[in-house]
């Protein structure tokens, strides 16, 4: 699953640490999600999207073949 967290974060001038504090996880989690190494739970994905005033579909992009 791809995501636009890095772009959205930069457009909002937000650091990884600030986003991490906002959604209540560690910076390590934001790094892992941003780089696509970890797919967050639905609850965390919702909270991240909410931090950017967006909906989940605008932040996370499910590839056609799904998760591999």
């Amino acid at each position: 699953m791809k995501n636009r967290i890095k772009d959205l974060r930069k457009s909002k001038k937000m650091t990884q640490e600030e986003l991490a504090i906002k959604v209540g996880v560690s910076r390590q989690s934001i790094i892992a999600i941003e780089s696509g190494k970890y797919n967050p739970s639905l609850e965390l994905a919702y909270n991240i999207s909410k931090a950017f005033d967006s909906i989940i579909e605008d932040v996370f992009i499910l590839e056609e073949r799904g998760e591999e």
Binding site: I21, G24, V25, Q28, A32, Y38, L44
Partner: peptide, 14 residues
């Protein structure tokens, strides 16, 4: 120590 840095999150569990 991890709790202070919000380290006990879902990634930690995973």
């Amino acid at each position: 120590m991890a709790k202070k840095q919000r380290g006990l999150d879902e990634l930690h569990d995973h």
